[in-house]
Design a protein around this nucleic acid. Structure first.
Lengths: 139, 139
DNA sequence: CTCATATATGCGAATCACTCGCATCTAAGC
DNA sequence: GCTTAGATGCGAGTGATTCGCATATATGAG
């Protein structure tokens, strides 16, 4: 029986990345986050577990992890970068403009239409981001 | 006979914005741009028409115009903000990852599905961005 | 047409998110 | 236990954007 999801730590090993003290904590925090924290928020969460980790290390680590394809970068309208573990299957995001909360959704239909349109234009899709800014429906 | 598109200048007047020298040039440049220039590029184009306009003025002006709904801000993967006149009908963007070129497209079907999904989640859509990073199809 | 004043502008300093240089440290292979 | 490539801490540096403030100017009132 293979595990459904190898952990980030396992994937780091596979990628030949060193498992240092600070890095282990960062991985643990990422595993435990089901929202889309930015670097400052990650730093806060890391500091809560083990103080003394420099914020530059968080920046470097998320960059390394993203380069190795273990996490995804997002930049919503607030400017800073946000991160999440690369999901099993791609999804897009609702961003609640009143609270900043992020909700994931997926539409196979939208994915399909994108492919179709890209083909019409003579493009291959490398990646895409669909961010829908919303507010709770009234009434 | 009403004009199909009021010019930016006309819309500024409607919004009670002052038409100063520098601002007129910025508006003219925006009207003439059918790409998605960033602030530096706008500054370059403005300087070519009338030197001496400070880049801070470009920043302030695009912010003012965006707040008044006359232009749209975009931030593609390169980090800086890019602008375009608010289009007649909404469109999304292909970004050629090899050249940085931006191509507009529109899909009523995608728009419709977005609305449908948002409704299912109990949201009203405020706005959205769909950026598809592509490369020219080979073979 | 002139004046008053709310708005814009130019300029340099400040800010914000992020990156880098470099000395030190340490994980992981031998 | 060594060795060494790779990781870290820290402070300085960057690049895009914003701000403070003195000056200038567009626009409406008279």
């Amino acid at each position: 029986m293979t595990k459904a999801h190898p952990t980030l730590t396992e994937r780091c090993r596979q990628e030949g990345l060193r498992l240092t003290g600070p890095r282990r904590v960062i991985l643990q925090v990422l595993e435990a986050s089901d929202d889309h924290p930015d670097v400052e928020e990650l730093h806060r969460r890391v500091e809560a577990i083990e103080p003394g980790v420099n914020i530059a290390t968080i920046y470097r680590t998320v960059n390394t992890l993203a380069e190795h394809g273990l996490i995804e970068r997002h930049s919503f309208a607030d400017g800073r970068m946000r991160f999440e573990i690369v999901p099993e299957t791609h999804h897009d995001h609702f961003i609640n403009v009143e609270t900043g909360e992020v909700v994931e959704f997926r539409s196979d239909e939208i994915e399909r239409i994108q492919e179709e349109i890209a083909r019409q234009y003579g493009f291959d899709i490398v990646s895409h981001t669909l961010d829908i800014y919303v507010r709770p429906r009234k009434g």
